[in-house]
């Protein structure tokens, strides 16, 4: 029973982590809380869903379309709502309000397109297969969610810490001015960062849409709130921290629901967050300084 709950928590947690990856990436590079991340995630899920239902494409193609759409919407969000503020040197607070505004626009568009319906991937989009090991049941979908979350997180880490591209991103995250003296064009790096963040959100949109069997225009909002908890737990801007924070949150939530009370689970999560912040204001894995940058762990 406990093993089953832990597994379920792990799967739920990796969906949180998947959502939080792109969110924490943008924060780590641009030091901006992109409140449109939930809406970008929704846009990706919509694109994936329509690719399956309207265009009748296979799931893997729908998945790629969702990533591409998420990436493009994310770049558009930056272009329209954040870049103009950056060029004027506006405060980071202005960026929060601006991203919140464009999130509302995207959600209204989503509402209009879906006519406020809750949509589902058609039955059989993902094969229903259940394995059982030592009395613990895991579906193929759960295994795929776990695997994909890990794969995407490790690919992102590899990109950031083992390639020229990653070095550019980390350089710009530390200092835009110094980077430009080295011949790096910061705007291109921002563009790429937003694209990757959005593509990750799009992937998360399809996976979570499948896992919870529901795609609707407000689907991003609860995840956005959870992503705050995840990145605070894991340390702001930390990629590895988002993964660990997501899994921790999933485990705590599942255990709270199964052993205490489902109605209390959010109260428990946020109380815990409050306690952690009291003891470690920079998160469990955050470095003890105010400035946050893209970091590995």
């Amino acid at each position: 029973m406990l093993a089953q709950q832990l597994l379920n928590g792990l799967v739920t947690g990796s969906t949180y982590a998947l959502f939080a990856l792109g969110f924490t990436l943008v924060f780590g590079v641009l030091h901006v809380l992109n409140l449109a991340h939930g809406a970008i995630f929704m846009a990706g899920a919509f694109a994936g869903l329509y690719a399956v239902t309207a265009a009748e494409l296979p799931l893997y193609l729908a998945f790629l379309i969702a990533m591409l759409s998420g990436g493009l919407v994310s770049v558009a969000v930056d272009w329209l709502a954040l870049r103009p503020l950056r060029q004027r040197g506006s405060s980071e607070f202005a960026a929060i309000i601006s991203s919140l505004g464009i999130a509302q626009v995207l959600m209204s568009a989503g509402q209009a397109i879906s006519q406020t319906q809750i949509m589902r991937f058609p039955f059989g989009t993902f094969p229903v297969v259940i394995y059982e090991f030592w009395g613990v049941r895991i579906s193929l979908l759960q295994a795929a969610i776990l695997g994909l979350s890990l794969l995407l997180a490790f690919t992102l880490l590899l990109f950031l810490f083992r390639t020229d591209f990653g070095r550019r991103v980390r350089a710009v995250a530390i200092s835009e001015r110094t980077s430009s003296l080295l011949g790096i064009r910061p705007n291109i790096v921002y563009f790429q960062t937003f694209f990757i963040s959005g593509a990750l959100a799009g992937a998360a949109g399809v996976i979570i849409g499948l896992a919870f069997n529901s795609v609707h225009f407000l689907m991003g909002e609860p995840f956005l709130l959870k992503a705050f908890v995840v990145i605070v737990l894991g340390g702001l801007g930390s990629i590895g921290g988002a993964l660990i924070g997501g899994v921790m949150l999933g485990l705590i939530q599942t255990i709270a629901v199964s052993y205490l009370s489902s109605s209390l689970s959010d109260a428990i999560i946020y109380s815990l967050l409050f306690c952690i912040l009291l003891i470690r204001p920079t998160g469990l894995f955050g470095k003890l300084h105010i400035e946050t940058r893209v970091v590995r762990s």
Partner: peptide, 18 residues
């Protein structure tokens, strides 16, 4: 203005961007 959180070698490799 070295990039403090990056290693010495990473700083040098970034120089190639120019």
């Amino acid at each position: 203005q070295v990039l403090g959180p990056l290693t010495v070698e990473e700083n040098l490799l970034l120089g190639r961007q120019a």
